Computed example of a mutant assay.
Amino acid sequence: MRLIDLAVRQALRSRCRYRVGALIVAGNRVLAWSPNIPRNSPTVDYSHATFHAEEAVLRRVQNASGAVAYIARVNRSGETLLARPCPRCQQALAAAGVAKARYTTGPMTTDIMSFY
């Protein structure tokens, strides 16, 4: 299984309006994984306030130096969509020492972003 497919599986687990999943990989080892997570109580518009998947996965990893982040977004049908990290998540990934991020850009396509 490709690593981006594991990020897609995390996105499918999301309960948010925009379903995004991420994982951090160092070498051949998956260090952490997470979908985006609702931030508020379910009674307070939880579909729009989330911890981004990139933020959530960085909270679970101790050392991401030199690692690669895989990020995927899916629609209701499970098709992959554009999942380019937002500027805040790009800063968080770079600050954590992540070297690259591979993200989905559409059905069956990906792109890479370098932080060095």
Rank of each mutant, 00 (worst) to 15 (best):
A83Y: 03
A53G: 13
T80I: 08
A56L: 07
T80Y: 00
Q62N: 03
R29L: 10
Y46R: 15
V30D: 06
R39W: 00
V61N: 02
W33H: 14
A32S: 11
V44H: 05
R29C: 11
S65I: 10
S77L: 09
I71F: 01
R73P: 01
S41Y: 05
R73H: 03
N63E: 07
R29D: 12
S41Q: 12
T43L: 12
H52I: 07
S41R: 15
A32C: 09
A32T: 11
V61Q: 02
I71A: 06
I71S: 03
P42Q: 12
I37S: 05
A56S: 13
T43A: 15
T43N: 06
E79Q: 12
P42V: 15
H48N: 14
P42D: 12
L82T: 06
G78I: 10
I37N: 05
V68A: 10
A69R: 02
D45F: 08
F51M: 11
V57K: 03
R84K: 12
G66W: 01
A56N: 05
E79I: 13
A69Q: 01
S47A: 09
Q62T: 10
F51R: 14
A67D: 00
D45W: 05
L58A: 06
H48E: 10
L81H: 01
S34W: 03
P42N: 12
R84V: 14
H52A: 15
A56R: 04
V30P: 11
F51H: 11
R39H: 03
P38H: 04
L31K: 12
T50A: 02
P42H: 13
L58F: 01
S41W: 05
E55L: 06
A53H: 09
V44I: 13
Y46E: 14
P38R: 04
R76G: 11
S77R: 10
V68K: 10
S77P: 04
V61D: 03
A64P: 02
T43M: 11
A64D: 03
A56P: 06
V44Q: 08
Y46K: 15
N36M: 08
V61E: 01
F51K: 11
I37L: 13
R84E: 09
R73N: 00
E54M: 10
A83E: 04
T80Q: 08
I37Q: 09
F51A: 12
T43E: 09
L81S: 05
A67I: 05
H52T: 15
L31E: 07
R60N: 02
P38K: 03
E55K: 11
A64G: 04
E55I: 05
P38M: 04
E79S: 14
I37Y: 00
Y46N: 15
S41N: 13
N40M: 13
H52G: 15
N40P: 03
T43D: 08
H48V: 14
T80E: 02
T43R: 12
N40E: 11
H48Y: 06
S34F: 00
E55R: 10
E79M: 12
Y46T: 14
D45H: 12
P38Q: 04
V74I: 09
V44W: 00
L58R: 01
S47D: 08
V68G: 04
R84T: 13
E79L: 13
E79D: 13
I37H: 00
V74Q: 04
S47V: 07
A72I: 10
V57G: 02
R59M: 05
